[in-house]
């Protein structure tokens, strides 16, 4: 099994504002973030593709009791990107106290933010974020 798009390449993409994923040359499904095989059909013939960066918010929570080292409250959400995959990330640019069921189905724009490294990770890295987009 080849690894077409490595974690490092994906991270470098995020740093430059690019959301890199993999498009399957067999079934056209987009796997994001990258993995070794197409998440839909198991195909290994994959091409690097840039995600357009929009999705639809499918679910969310407001975390009031966080893991050690994080400051509550904050919103974690899952969005279905326009290319099909579900992605988890923080919904930023919103007051967590205003989060309610009306968020579901809203359009979001993907971005990224830095998460600090710890003893067991390879330093700082970027993770996906969402912000509400104009419908």
């Amino acid at each position: 099994m080849d690894y077409k798009l490595t974690y490092d390449q994906y991270q470098q993409g995020l740093q430059k504002g690019k959301l890199l994923g993999l498009k399957c040359n067999g079934c056209d499904a987009v796997t994001f973030p990258p993995k070794s095989l197409c998440r839909e059909c198991n195909g290994s013939d994959l091409s690097i593709t840039e995600i357009k960066g929009f999705g639809t918010l499918r679910t969310f929570t407001v975390v009031r009791v966080p893991p050690e080292g994080f400051t509550p409250p904050y919103v974690v959400a899952m969005a279905e990107i326009d290319e099909g995959a579900w992605v988890m990330g923080n919904l930023v640019d919103i007051n967590p106290d205003d989060a309610d069921m009306s968020l579901i189905g809203k359009k979001v724009r993907l971005g990224s933010q830095i998460v600090k490294g710890d003893t067991y990770s390879g330093g700082d890295s970027r993770v996906v974020t969402f912000s509400l987009a104009a419908n």
Binding site: Y10, T59, V63, V65
Partner: peptide
Amino acid sequence: NRLIFPNITAPGAFAMMATRYFA
């Protein structure tokens, strides 16, 4: 953790299932 589950907690991950189920 960095690819998929940033700062989510166990309650948070399951809370999102509740939100989705309700919807």
